[in-house]
């Protein structure tokens, strides 16, 4: 605490914020189109599905778990929706089916971790790859067209001048915020990572909390999967490869850590912004797609390194190991 006051206010600003500011400055210079309203809307639209998945991943990480299946779940959901549409089901049923599939995958993750006792990342990687496999088998590895107007409206439509996907992300985020900070569920999530024994002692069924957390993460991945299907107008098992990395990166850059349930979904917004601005800026600046892959990995990892360093100085906690 003392160290914190000594270091002064400005040094408490996490490095992620500096990097966002720096990126904006650079992009403003390099790419004239960056600071236009339409482009900023673009950033927000790109951020929308990522924010939705990342919030789910954040809750899982708060419980000292991990979810590597979200990218696969998103792909599967886009496939399920497209196939249900193709089979002639109404769009609402199709979307419900997709959400159900995602939620089910999430719950399976939870059962594997909390009841069966598998290490979280083996469990989620295993379930995720099975979800991917199901997606592949259902589509024979092909992309399935899904040009339903309601589905497309999620990306193209707007309400009161605001793009639908932004509204959807904001709504999802709002609901999650209520869940996390206004109800016992959120307190359970934070306690499960912080001190599960304390939670057990007051009579909470920690296993159920854990299963539910993975379920929520799966459900949110499913919502994001709908947005991806809507944007591409298709269902494809590999549509969201690598999204898990972005989501985990956004969570950690934001300041949620794997220890003691520290952090929160509010912080993840910052991480999501960083990644989305980075990606959009690279596009606007005309950097070729091929360079983006490695560059984004580099920036995300670099920010995390800075962030770990930053927290070590602020907390002055250079203990033995």
């Amino acid at each position: 605490m003392q160290v914190k006051t000594l270091l002064g206010q400005w040094r408490q600003i996490p490095p992620a914020i500096w990097i966002v500011v720096l990126m904006c400055l650079i992009y403003g210079k390099v790419a004239p189109g960056f600071f236009t309203l339409s482009n900023l809307t673009n950033v927000a639209m790109q951020a929308a599905p990522l924010l939705i998945v990342a919030v789910g991943v954040t809750t899982v990480i708060l419980t000292e778990g991990i979810d590597l299946s979200v990218g696969f779940i998103m792909g599967l959901v886009s496939v399920v929706v497209s196939l249900l549409l193709k089979a002639g089901l109404g769009i609402w049923w199709a979307m419900l089916g997709g959400l159900g599939a995602g939620f089910l995958c999430g719950l399976t993750n939870g059962v594997m971790v909390a009841s069966v006792g598998l290490p979280p990342f083996i469990a989620t990687l295993g379930v995720g790859s099975m979800a991917y496999g199901v997606g592949l088998v259902l589509t024979e590895g092909q992309s399935i067209q899904a040009l339903d107007p309601v589905l497309l409206f999620l990306t193209n439509g707007s309400l009161a001048g605001v793009n639908m996907s932004i509204i959807l992300a904001a709504a999802v985020f709002g609901i999650c915020w209520l869940l996390m900070y206004e109800t016992a569920f959120g307190r359970n999530v934070i306690s499960l990572g912080g001190n599960p024994e304390a939670l057990r002692v007051v009579g909470v069924n920690t296993r159920r909390v854990s299963i539910l957390v993975y379920g929520v993460s799966g459900l949110l991945a499913a919502v994001a999967g709908l947005l991806v299907a809507s944007r591409t107008g298709s269902g494809y098992a590999a549509a969201a490869m690598g999204w898990d990395f972005d989501a985990i990166g956004a969570t950690i850059i934001g300041g949620t850590s794997f220890e003691e349930g520290k952090g929160g979904i509010g912080k993840t917004v910052l991480g999501v912004l960083l990644i989305s601005i980075l990606r959009n800026g690279l596009n606007v600046a005309g950097v070729h797609n091929m360079y983006q892959f490695a560059l984004i990995g580099l920036v995300v990892l670099g920010t995390i390194v800075l962030d770990v360093r930053f927290r070590q100085t602020v907390e002055g906690g250079l203990k033995a190991q």
């Binding site: 690598g242 990395f245 950690i252 490695a294 580099l298 995300v300 995390i304 070590q312």
Partner: peptide, 19 residues
């Protein structure tokens, strides 16, 4: 630097694949 192994190596995975 003491990053969680899983974060560090996951990042390295994406960089390696990007390269």
């Amino acid at each position: 630097i003491k990053l969680p192994p899983f974060v560090a190596t996951y990042g390295a995975k994406w960089i390696a694949e990007g390269l």
